[in-house]
């Protein structure tokens, strides 16, 4: 019974670059994950640069609606920060509430993306219709998968907090979930700017 607890303790005490092992691993994962997005955005830039018939994004995509989605995602980042702050003070109820708000933000974003995709497909813009559509769906779809993963992760965190498995001594779990969620937000800021606005 005490064996896993000891191992767990040792693991979290191990520090590289001044960070706990699990946090370092999360950063390394995010760094490698960012390379995937870098490749997608790089390909987007290259294809667009080489294509004279590239459509003006504002004429094809609904900027105002996507701006609302961006706003919600930024808000959910703030609620994630509040959730981590709450668990550091051992306020489990507060942590759960802020986490739930973050979760709702993620669900709203996913619903918005489903609506957007449906709208585009109804207007004949599908994965195979043009380079613009292909890069658009691949990049935003890859990001959407990350949001879905984040929502599942947030659901797990909510269940853990509900079950009382997270106290201020396990707050690193919430911190790592937060790191992932902020990364998803950060990537969306770049995707939104480069694909929707430029």
């Amino acid at each position: 019974m005490s064996q896993p607890a000891v191992a767990d303790h040792l693991l979290s005490e191990r520090r590289v670059l001044g960070a706990a092992w699990d946090k370092l691993m999360m950063w390394l994962f995010l760094g490698s994950d960012a390379m995937g997005f870098a490749a997608l955005l790089g390909v987007y830039a290259a294809l667009r640069f080489g294509d004279e018939r590239w459509p003006i994004p504002q004429e094809v995509l609904g900027i105002n609606f996507t701006a609302l989605m961006t706003f919600v995602l930024i808000c959910s980042s703030v609620t994630m920060v509040k959730s981590y702050e709450a668990i550091q003070k051992d306020d489990r109820v507060g942590c759960w509430r802020w986490l739930f708000a973050t979760f709702l933000g993620g669900v709203f974003f996913l619903a918005g993306q489903c609506y957007e995709y449906t709208h585009l497909v109804e207007h004949g813009i599908t994965l195979g219709s043009s380079n613009f559509a292909a890069t658009f769906f691949c990049t935003t779809g890859f990001h959407g998968c990350h949001v879905l993963g984040g929502v599942i992760l947030l659901g797990t965190a909510l269940a853990k907090v509900s079950a009382g498995q997270i106290t201020k001594y396990q707050s690193n779990f919430i911190e790592n979930v937060g790191l992932y969620w902020h990364f998803v937000d950060l990537v969306w800021i770049l995707v939104f700017t480069f694909i929707y606005l430029v």
Binding site: A19, M35, A38, A45, V78, H182
Partner: peptide, 26 residues
């Protein structure tokens, strides 16, 4: 939000490496 301000500079290298490599790949 990701508390890079509290991290050591070594972590900054990990965090900013994708940006550098992303510019390179572009």
């Amino acid at each position: 939000f990701m508390h890079l301000k509290f991290e050591r500079r070594g972590m900054w290298v990990i965090a900013s490496a994708p940006l550098f490599l992303g510019v390179l790949i572009t």
